[in-house]
Structure formats: C-alpha cells, structure tokens
C-alpha cells in the first residue's frame, strides 16, 4: 500500500503542500480544502506539527461512514474515490476521519488520490518532509 508519508521533524510549515494540492485539484489556492493540511498547536510555542493526509492504511472509516456509497475504495489505484452525484452532504465522513476535508464551494470531499501516482505535495516539499515510495 502506497501513501504520502509525513516526517514531522523535517517540516518547516511553509504550507506549499496544501497550496499546490488545492490549486491542482480545485483550480484555486485554498489550504483549508486541500487533501493535505499541516497544522500545529499554537498554544505551544512553535511546537510539533501534525499532518492530515490519507494514509491509506486505516480501516477506511470514511468509506464505512458514508451511508450512500459516495465514497468507494478503488482497489486498482489504492485510493478512495468520491462521487459527487451520490453525496447527500451528511458530512459523516468528516466526523469519521480527521484526514478528510471538504471544499465548501463545490461540496467535493477531498481525500488524497496520490495525483495519479505523482503526488504534487511531495514534489513541492522543499525539505523532504513528505515522501512517496521512500523518496522525497
């Protein structure tokens, strides 16, 4: 199983990952709706970071939470697919997994799809904090 791996000790909070993710998927720069988001707890001075991105290794709680089958697992690509036609905007998937995001403008559920095998966030990360198949 392949996924974008986050190495928090290398991350410098440049946000280029979420900027390029949202731009390439939505046509606008909107980190809050990106399929990858790095945050940190501002109540601790420049403390550790966390990254929200689908790690493809869990129990696919998002798929299981969807009552209408709008989220399905694509065995071939190894990613979760979203079907806007079926979505009823119940937002259960957002509650089921913190790595799921939603674009409020289009209603699209945003889950990492690995950019068809060439994750842009990994390409743009200036510090090698994101890796894909072991490569920065």
């Amino acid at each position: 199983m392949k996924y974008v791996e986050f190495h928090k000790e290398k991350c410098i909070s440049c946000d280029l990952c979420s900027q390029v993710c949202s731009l390439t998927k939505l046509g606008r720069i909107q980190p809050a709706a990106a399929a990858i988001r790095v945050t940190r707890d501002p109540s601790v001075y420049l403390g550790e970071r966390e990254c929200a991105v689908c790690d493809m290794t869990h129990d696919r709680a998002c798929v299981d939470s969807c009552p209408v089958g709008a989220l399905t697992y694509d065995e071939g690509a190894g990613v979760v697919r979203f079907d806007a036609e079926l979505c009823t905007e119940c937002l259960a998937c957002l509650d089921a997994c913190p790595n799921v995001a939603r674009d409020a403008d289009s209603g699209r559920i945003m889950i990492c799809d690995l950019c068809a095998g060439d994750p842009q966030c990994v390409q743009w990360c200036p510090e090698g904090a994101l890796t894909w198949e072991g490569k920065a």
Binding site: S13, C14, L16, L46, P126
Partner: peptide, 9 residues
C-alpha cells in the same frame, strides 16, 4: 522554521 510559501527557510 519557514514563513508560508517559502523555500529559503
């Protein structure tokens, strides 16, 4: 630490 959008760091 970097600022947003920065690769100078």
């Amino acid at each position: 630490e970097a600022c947003g959008g920065c690769n100078v760091i």
